[in-house]
Design a binder for these strands. Sequence first.
DNA 1: CGAGTGGTTGAAATCCGTCAAGAATAGTGG
DNA 2: CCACTATTCTTGACGGATTTCAACCACTCG
Lengths: 244, 244
Amino acid sequence: MGRALQPAEHCCPRSGMSGSGVHTEPLSALEPFASMANCGRHKEICSEATYGNYLHLMVSGAAGKYSTQPDGRRQMIDLLLPGDFFGFFSQQDHEFTVEAIVEKTVVAHYPRRRVEAVAEVDPQLARMLNEIALAAALRTEAMLIILGRVTATEKVGAFLLEMSHRLPSMSLDDVALPISRSDIGEFLAMSAETVSRALSDLKSRRIISFAGTRHVHIADRDALENGNFVVPHNGCLTSPASEG
Amino acid sequence: MGRALQPAEHCCPRSGMSGSGVHTEPLSALEPFASMANCGRHKEICSEATYGNYLHLMVSGAAGKYSTQPDGRRQMIDLLLPGDFFGFFSQQDHEFTVEAIVEKTVVAHYPRRRVEAVAEVDPQLARMLNEIALAAALRTEAMLIILGRVTATEKVGAFLLEMSHRLPSMSLDDVALPISRSDIGEFLAMSAETVSRALSDLKSRRIISFAGTRHVHIADRDALENGNFVVPHNGCLTSPASEG
DNA sequence: CGAGTGGTTGAAATCCGTCAAGAATAGTGG
DNA sequence: CCACTATTCTTGACGGATTTCAACCACTCG
């Protein structure tokens, strides 16, 4: 239980590199220090102890960063996909755990000390670390915007758009969801049934179509981006009544 | 309209320093470069043009960072209080504006170029910039956790807890809300009426009490932290059914 | 074929947003 | 200090949206 990190082998962690638009070449200088871990569903990727001491890179699969409340309930606060880095913003009064969502999720761990040491003499790496931190912050911010939307259909629609940008695929409009409806629900703070209903709703409006349960094709990206599926009511997100 | 930034005078921006636990002494090296701006309610603090070119520090008052969706609706994605820095994570496809929420909100602007130049030769400042970025990321993360909660009462309760940590006061349990119910609603993505109802609910449960509309006293912090006010139902935030 | 997982859909109860009306508060000027 | 006004805050009622419980279908695996 103590040390969940189990370095498997030293190898080059640049396989499914894609999302987030972060260039990872500079990290090649660190590859000698990287260790890989292979995790199954619901297995903790890094324990609290190791979390802060390493910089982590998703190589394949999918993982979630969960916040556990004192009352025992938990909530996914970050969805980690291949190419995503995590482990920058740790500590704090909340407790975090990072768990694999799909089988055979592979993560590369870089010792933070080493990374920082190299960054001190390698400005290119230092700049890249900033980019990585920025990308992580933008993920959280994007998530926040999605969660703040009003209806379930809007949230799911925004989630699909986000996934279409972060997931690798031939076309931007083909989204291969790596996680179940239930996991999406955990991410969007709603029930799996509502996720399913929202997807059916979008399908019936011809905004998306399916080629398999987890393969979504975005047919009308405009409608998705502009929220053209909400009834007239404006909700609490309206712009302020001009200036008075 | 073009340039919202109006440097008023050069002075030392360390008045209401309090929240976020960031030590601002190292920034004193930058004070000669700082310019102050004084804004009224709903006035844009920094236009998009100046946003990325400056590092901003809240001196007094309160402000909100808003994301405007392509469909025109907007959402507050960060609440800025005295002592908070912002302006790190900019760009992105979304458009951001930062507006003062209360009258006489004062913000200090530090030219980003200058800050970075000084940071290159001042490791203490560089470390502090990291702390600042971390604080900003943690704000967003905390926000995410609040928004992910299920019921309105829980959200408002979590918001009160967060405010009790971020606002300065004699006692940790006395919270002087700086913004209206309506603004809280914009922040928590719910209507002002629901905010009011949630507060009344917490009051009737003896978890909080009022000494004036905007002065909340937390009477039972445990209940607030542990969410002891939800009916038996668990919602979608339950822990996974152990391990199979 | 049966068991198990994941996905969809239905029905009832609950929660929240909206509209609306009052109550409380703050600000202004006499 | 009081009257007047504007704003904010609270509370009620109604309708719509989401959660929950439940049944059913599709698929995989032994």
